[in-house]
């Protein structure tokens, strides 16, 4: 069981936002009060706040719009983020910006977060050039922990090549996070993959249970 408050961090391009959106939707099946906070003030494209209507349809409250349109570069955080962090009745998912730069935003809330029952996941995509081996991933863990003033509590293998993800990608990523897990003692919380691949692996291999991802952030014409 994950903690009430879940922070999603990682290298940019690891698939944090897709994972966060899918994870929040999964949580909405068991919780009536799910909030997804978009803390990404680094990148103005492909942010979870673009999917407010979708999230609403699952009863999820999006926190992150500063009352202006979605495509603005404004390093401003709405006050409701405190609510998502502190409200003990809220199942809260925080979609953090990529890299240590994106995670730095968390430092401002770190004292409040430490008082909560929280998890902080590192999403890993072994197909990203900068997170292809154990040492590189551990470097990210250290840098994100330093920037956020918080500790990572679990790993998410989200190794993918978008719609052309193969089973081998997922297995290779799993081996990578296993290596990281052995060295850091961080548990592997999830292996995630697009639905088709997740179903294939889940039907043939009982050792890992793959969390199915629907690509909500990718347009139909994208690969």
């Amino acid at each position: 069981m994950d903690k009430r408050l879940v922070l999603i961090t990682g290298h940019y391009g690891s698939g944090k936002t897709e994972f966060a959106v899918n994870y929040a939707i999964e949580c909405s099946k068991d919780h009536h009060n799910v909030r997804l906070a978009d803390l990404d003030i680094v990148n103005p494209y492909f942010r979870s706040r673009e999917r407010e209507d979708l999230l609403k349809s699952f009863g999820i409250r999006l926190v992150g719009n500063v009352n202006v349109n979605v495509s603005i570069e404004l390093p401003a955080l709405p006050p409701e983020i405190r609510g998502a962090i502190e409200d003990s009745q809220s199942k809260s998912v925080i979609d953090v910006g990529g890299d240590p730069i994106g995670a730095r935003v968390l430092a401002r809330y770190s004292e409040d977060i430490k008082k909560q029952d929280y998890d902080m996941f590192l999403v890993v995509n072994a197909n990203r050039p900068e997170t292809q081996n154990k040492d590189a991933v551990i470097k990210y863990i250290k840098e994100i922990e330093f920037a956020s003033k918080l500790k990572i509590t679990g790993l998410v293998n989200n190794t993918h090549l978008l719609k052309s993800t193969s089973k081998e990608d997922v297995y290779r990523g799993h081996r990578l996070v296993e290596e990281v897990s052995i060295e850091t003692h961080l548990p592997i919380k999830y292996d995630a993959a697009i639905k088709k691949i997740a179903e294939e692996i889940n039907s043939e291999n009982s050792d890992i249970k793959v969390f199915p991802i629907t690509l909500y952030m990718r347009e139909e014409w994208m690969s």
Partner: peptide
Amino acid sequence: AKVLMKGNEAVGAA
């Protein structure tokens, strides 16, 4: 092997 890159990064790498 194929890697996943953002267009802007790929411009720099290339």
